[in-house]
């Protein structure tokens, strides 16, 4: 029975990879990455400005297990373009720097360096100004 579940999950992952031209499997979300390697990969993708789907693998350890079985790639993140595994953080970064990633994804190579994505929420500054208002009252 557990075999059935894992097959179902693997098929679902294969479908996601098939249906999304650019899809990133990562730890955490693009807004709040939970690992430095995922954060760096997100920063590169954001710099390229191409829309991508993102899947957080953390909620269920089986996602990672099945994904790695499927891709024969042991680590996270994993970027797929047009159904093919491009690589993890190292390859994505290297290909970004050489301009290959932009050409694989069919976008222009941006002139600017990718902006670092920090896990810290940006709401902090809003809260701070809110507190200041409260102080004035």
């Amino acid at each position: 029975m557990s075999d059935e579940i894992s097959n179902e999950l693997r098929e679902h992952l294969a479908k996601l990879i098939d249906e999304n031209e650019v899809i990133l499997f990562m730890k955490g979300t693009p807004e709040s990455p939970a690992c430095g390697f995922s954060a760096r990969t997100v920063a590169v993708l954001n710099a390229l400005g191409r829309k991508y789907a993102a899947v957080d693998i953390l909620p269920d350890p089986r996602i990672r297990q099945e994904l790695s079985e499927l891709s024969q790639w042991p680590t996270i993140p994993q970027l797929f373009v047009d159904g093919e595994l491009i690589g993890g953080c190292d390859i994505v970064t290297e290909m970004y720097e050489s301009g290959e990633l932009a050409s694989v994804m069919g976008v222009e190579q941006p002139a600017a360096e990718p902006e670092a994505v920090e896990p810290a929420p940006q709401a902090g500054s809003v809260q701070a100004s809110g507190l200041q208002l409260e102080n004035n009252l």
Partner: peptide, 13 residues
């Protein structure tokens, strides 16, 4: 690149 990295990954499977 992916194949090159896989050669290394296999060593530490």
């Amino acid at each position: 690149r992916i194949q090159q990295h896989k050669l290394i990954n296999e060593i530490f499977e």
